[in-house]
């Protein structure tokens, strides 16, 4: 099982590449900062693009809209959501 720190690093890079944020560096994304509206200032289309990319990469499914929204709050919440999903898959 992949460590959560590694996962966060991976997520930041995925956000940067899939949303054309090459201007942003990994270090600039704060792990507890809101990803949408404030912080990186992503919008709902970004969120959808990111959701599609995450589902593909981690073979997970976002099934519940409310849960998905909560998990999209920050890198931290997103990492723990994916970690949990992967864990429950392999369990």
């Amino acid at each position: 099982m992949q460590s959560i720190e590694l996962l966060k690093k991976e997520l930041k890079n995925l956000i940067i590449t899939s949303l054309n944020l090459q201007n942003t560096t990994e270090q600039e994304i704060q792990e507890d900062e809101p990803l949408f509206r404030e912080g990186l200032g992503l919008d709902s289309i970004d969120a959808l693009e990111l959701a599609v990319a995450l589902e593909k990469k981690y073979s997970i499914k976002f099934e519940d809209e409310k849960l998905a929204r909560q998990s999209f709050q920050s890198i931290n919440t997103l990492a723990s959501f994916i970690h949990q999903k992967k864990h429950s898959l392999s369990a």
Partner: peptide, 8 residues
């Protein structure tokens, strides 16, 4: 709707 997920 501002739902994001295709399934929703």
């Amino acid at each position: 709707t501002n739902c994001l997920l295709p399934r929703e």
